[in-house]
Design a protein around this nucleic acid. Structure first.
Lengths: 97, 97
DNA sequence: CTGGATCCTCGAGGATACTG
DNA sequence: CAGTATCCTCGAGGATCCAG
């Protein structure tokens, strides 16, 4: 994945979202916090290594954090992606499938 | 990039968008059609090979087509992504940068 | 200018085994 | 359960040269 240096809202957002798993993870945490093994089950096909890496990266980016009972929950910054996810959902329904 | 088989609106949309250049290309064609060389200039850093490949793939997906004067323009399906792009722009403005 | 053809790099992600 | 550590694969994308 590349990194754009110029600070454009679109480019910055694409930088974060343009890998396969990130959006899936955020999507899966939208309604409730989940533990590692639950995420592993929801995200069919992800490897433990990748899930670990993505969760770590998302924590560094302040998109989510791990709470006291060990489950992962979105921060405000993570929940902010809901509008993007909703737009994608609408698009998928209308033009794909 | 992976392919999800189960037909979920979110997964299908992510399948299309989860590479670095696709969204940038659609974004660049949103307001006006452009020729190959113009896209090459706008999309700083893209190689001719990659641009060719992405344009071909996007044409196969009916997201854009090449018109009579040789420039590329979005189809309705391509323009449909505007809502997603707008959401990303808003997100970027609010939480990133 | 608009690509096609080749070759090459690099990193995302998988598989597996292991630990607290 | 929740990871960590290794090793390995595979494909996205870059660089370059060439042609219509």
């Amino acid at each position: 994945m590349k990194k754009t240096n110029h600070k454009c809202p679109i480019s910055s957002t694409i930088d974060i979202l343009s890998d396969f798993w990130t959006m899936h993870i955020v999507y899966n945490l939208q309604d409730s916090s989940k533990r590692f093994c639950d995420l592993e089950k929801s995200l069919e096909g992800i490897s433990t290594r990748t899930l670990t890496l993505k969760l770590k990266k998302l924590q560094e980016e302040k998109m989510l954090n791990k709470n006291s009972n060990g489950s992962y929950e979105l921060t405000d910054k993570g929940h902010g992606l809901k509008t993007v996810i909703d737009a994608m959902k609408q698009y998928g329904k209308k033009y794909l499938i």
